[in-house]
Amino acid sequence: MTDRAYRAARADALRIEPLGELTALFDRRSMQTHLVVSPMPEILETMGDDASNATALARRLAASFDLESEGDAIPVLAERLAELAAMGLVERA
């Protein structure tokens, strides 16, 4: 599977409100509400303004979170990125 690079929405496009165990994301560009759970908000936050693929993301997440091992995390992160792309929250770079 190719490890595609994505770019997150600009920070001012999203309004992020933690609601207990869920996080509500409002996308001002689509006017859609997304309810997500960890690690989606963390992924978006970590991506910042740069394009990144799952490999780069695993490395950056490992710096601030306790990932079991970067290697195992990569396919999972690739899947999460594809889900975020389907929601329109990240875009292929």
Binding site: R15, L19, G20, E21, L22, F26, M31, T33, L35
Partner: peptide
Amino acid sequence: GEGEAFVRLTEASTNYVALGE
């Protein structure tokens, strides 16, 4: 919890989507 109440009320609202932010 806040999250579940939020989900239930979006379903109970007929114009939530139309009001945007």
